[in-house]
Amino acid sequence: MASQGTKRSYEQMETDGERQNATEIRASVGKMIGGIGRFYIQMCTELKLSDYEGRLIQNSLTIERMVLSAFDERRNKYLEEHPSAGKDPKKTGGPIYRRVNGKWMRELILYDKEEIRRIWRQANNGDDATAGLTHMMIWHSNLNDATYQRTRALVRTGMDPRMCSLMQGSTLPRRSGAAGAAVKGVGTMVMELVRMIKRGINDRNFWRGENGRKTRIAYERMCNILKGKFQTAAQKAMMDQVRESRNPGNAEFEDLTFLARSALILRGSVAHKSCLPACVYGPAVASGYDFEREGYSLVGIDPFRLLQNSQVYSLIRPNENPAHKSQLVWMACHSAAFEDLRVLSFIKGTKVLPRGKLSTRGVQIASNENMETMESSTLELRSRYWAIRTRSGGNTNQQRASAGQISIQPTFSVQRNLPFDRTTIMAAFNGNTEGRTSDMRTEIIRMMESARPEDVSFQGRGVFELSDEKAASPIVPSFDMSNEGSYFFGDNAEEYDN
């Protein structure tokens, strides 16, 4: 783990906690998980779902989305002020799938948001429990990260689609708070800032007046979040320049895209947490497990152990491969979309394939898809080993990566060399080191050039047997250095459309 220093740990961010010791953190995270579980059980009762239907990941996603929508204050306010045809701002819903006479049927349900809020609060001892809501947002974000390569979004903001390893959390809503900021990748933060800068260039009043003052505060806050992700002084200094700019424009845009590229080699610290679907927490609570009393951590053995003992089902389209669908969801559960496939294969105990080789589309089923041909199958979400999630980018030494994705962002704290394609990355730096950030740029390029592919990161860190909950005997895996390590390699994943 990167030293926490003055930073709060993510469990504290996750639970809005002030400084807590490890036991208190485990208890408050457990409380959050228990609340999600209780809410899910109650919703299944309301909807009269069978046990099997309640364990269907598509039903879980609909129920999670309903509660997130019920608590989305800004959108609710907007919907009330701008009524649109056929949208009731006070209601929320989605597809629920039921097994009827041996076939899967889709039923569109509609609930009062007020009623959903009441059920959620009741499951969370009367609190709004925003930490639990954020947790579900991060699960949705991790699922998107594993399912889609955001080529269009990258290109629109002047970045290269091969930089997708920097895009963790790119679909997280803005209201996801400190826990959300911690899991956002460098590219995601750059993209958010670039969008602001572009608006400022096109709209003279963007930075002016009372609204402009708020915009400015948001801009500086985002700059500080991004600065905190960088691990070298030169990158941090460049972020200070971007933040202090009187009138952010093209120079800042250039600096930010430069920094994003540099992060492929001088990786930023991005938190990883295993956020599971509500249909995993519900049955665990129903079986009598007391998360608050037992304590829970999002970055240790607990999620692995929970998945070892969970039964989750998914709808499967006619030509999809259930094992591939399982891999997709497994990666999402562990926030591992940008991790090295060699490491993932070792931990999972079966070969993890790149996205383009998977015969599976996303987990969600569109409303126009034919239910007649839908089957369902068990998702295999178990693992051979477990490993500690990392909050750091690993040290800054790398190795060759593949054509589709030119770097990785480690999820697990496991000893290995970190793949990246130096030639491709360095070719993108057209040696432009003039301007006010020239000395920093020169320094950053120097550090990137001296990074050695064969150097090892996370020295001495290994994986653990599932029986080793105290992480007492690390097993340090050895990897084939020459092997392909990137998930979005030469990829044809669908595009994420909101």
Rank of each mutant, 00 (worst) to 15 (best):
K229P: 00
S413E: 00
K103H: 12
R55L: 13
E192Q: 11
T157H: 03
R246A: 01
T232R: 14
D51F: 00
A251Y: 13
L315P: 04
T442L: 13
A179H: 11
A323Q: 14
E494H: 12
L353S: 00
L341D: 01
I365C: 07
E53M: 08
P161Q: 02
G209A: 09
C164W: 09
V285H: 12
N309Y: 07
K470N: 10
F338E: 01
L47C: 12
M189G: 06
V270S: 12
Y289Q: 04
I25Q: 01
I96L: 15
F71L: 13
I301G: 07
V476Q: 01
T423Q: 15
G93L: 01
A181N: 14
N498H: 02
T378Y: 08
T147A: 12
K198N: 13
V155K: 04
L358E: 03
R199P: 04
C333N: 08
Y296A: 05
H82K: 02
A131D: 08
F489H: 04
A493N: 04
N432K: 10
E339V: 10
I63Q: 03
L306Q: 15
A251V: 15
M331V: 12
V363R: 00
A263Y: 05
P161L: 07
L353G: 00
D127K: 13
G34A: 15
F458A: 00
M447E: 12
K31F: 11
T45A: 11
L172Y: 05
I265N: 02
Q149M: 08
I116C: 15
T157E: 00
Y97E: 10
Q12S: 15
L379D: 01
F346Q: 08
N124W: 05
S486W: 09
M481N: 03
R26N: 01
S359M: 02
F253V: 14
S478V: 02
G485L: 00
N309T: 11
P248V: 10
T411H: 06
F39L: 07
F304E: 02
M371V: 12
M32S: 07
P283M: 13
V363L: 12
I116D: 06
G228M: 04
I25C: 11
D16E: 15
G37H: 13
D145L: 02
G212R: 09
E73A: 15
G300T: 07
L193V: 11
M191S: 08
A234F: 02
Y111F: 12
G356K: 01
M13Q: 13
A237R: 01
K184L: 07
L306T: 15
S402V: 10
P303W: 05
F258W: 05
G34L: 13
D455H: 07
G34M: 07
M374R: 08
I201K: 00
R19G: 09
R156V: 01
I36R: 01
N397P: 08
P474D: 04
R261L: 10
Q235K: 11
A234C: 10
P248H: 05
Q308F: 12
S335I: 02
G356N: 01
W120E: 04
A471K: 07
Y52H: 04
L307M: 08
F420P: 01
F206T: 05
A428I: 12
K470C: 06
Y281C: 12
L79P: 08
E294S: 12
P248R: 05
P322L: 06
S359H: 08
A337P: 15
Y313S: 15
M13S: 00
E252H: 02
L154Y: 06
N417R: 13
D145K: 04
G282M: 12
N319Q: 04
R446V: 09
A471G: 13
N144C: 14
R355H: 04
G94V: 11
N492D: 11
M137I: 14
R305Q: 05
G356L: 04
A70R: 01
E254K: 12
I36T: 11
E469F: 13
L341Y: 01
A181H: 11
V343M: 10
Y148K: 03
S274H: 03
Q4P: 15
P322C: 07
L418W: 03
D128R: 03
A22W: 12
R355V: 00
L226Q: 10
I365K: 04
S376C: 15
C164G: 14
T396A: 06
G169I: 06
S170M: 10
V352K: 05
N211V: 10
K214G: 03
E294Y: 13
F489E: 04
A493M: 09
A178D: 10
S407N: 08
A233R: 04
A323H: 14
C223W: 13
I301P: 09
R461W: 10
L226A: 03
D491N: 13
P95K: 07
F489M: 06
N202W: 01
K31H: 15
G30W: 05
T360W: 03
K87Y: 05
I197Y: 10
S141E: 06
S377D: 02
K103S: 03
F71Q: 14
F206D: 02
L259F: 03
L341A: 02
